[in-house]
Design a binder for these strands. Structure first.
Length: 180
DNA sequence: GCCAACGTTGGC
DNA sequence: GCCAACGTTGGC
């Protein structure tokens, strides 16, 4: 089997991507159909984006800094890491003068919406899950905006989210993929 | 609005 | 390299 083929068969991973909905919400993603996940300026989160987030991975779109914080949607990765263009743009709030074309510091991936979660899954519902007791997501003080889930954590969140998946644009709800 | 947690910066 | 000061994140 070729390397690409092995990569294609790699186990799909699950991630939490946090966003403040006043900056960019799941509804914005639905409107846009696809977006680059720009502006990540934390090294650990950057490393996940650059090295581990892969096409096809599942993304739980998390609204932070709102009350209550929620998982508002399901998305998937449609383009793996490439240099975040905003780092080179002096007009961008994410501009980083240390970054040079050819020597990027920050990376972005592209994601697309799969289904809305309605009603959204609230953080306090997640807190009720024993399987998430030690998760990064619920860990006090965890400020990572790109957050890996273990397979078990992904499963348990999927179980909660799945009955609430609402297809986009009035179409039928998306067929659950393998493992869902 | 408060504040805990954590990352970054900069003086030494 | 240490560490105090400061800024940001993000739940509450």
């Amino acid at each position: 089997m070729s390397a690409t083929r092995r990569a294609a068969r790699r186990r799909r991973r699950s991630w939490i991507f946090k966003s403040e909905p006043s900056v960019y919400s799941f509804a914005d993603l639905v409107r846009d159909g696809r977006t680059l996940w720009e502006g990540v300026r934390n090294h650990q989160a950057r490393n996940f984006l650059r090295d581990e987030v892969a096409v096809g991975d599942e993304v739980f779109f998390y609204h932070s800094s709102v009350s209550p914080p929620v998982i508002a949607g399901l998305a998937r990765v449609v383009e793996a890491a490439y240099p975040d263009p905003t780092q080179f743009d002096p007009a961008s709030p994410y501009h980083d003068p240390r970054a040079l074309p050819g020597a990027p510091i920050w990376y972005a991936v592209d994601i697309a919406p799969v289904a809305a979660v309605a009603p959204p899954v609230r953080r306090d519902e997640l807190k009720g899950l024993a399987a998430l007791a030690d998760s990064l997501l619920l860990k006090r003080g965890c400020r990572l905006s790109i957050l890996p889930l273990t397979a078990a954590e992904g499963r348990v969140i999927t179980r909660l989210v799945r009955p609430r998946l609402v297809g986009l644009g009035g179409r039928a709800r998306p067929r659950p993929g393998p493992g869902m």
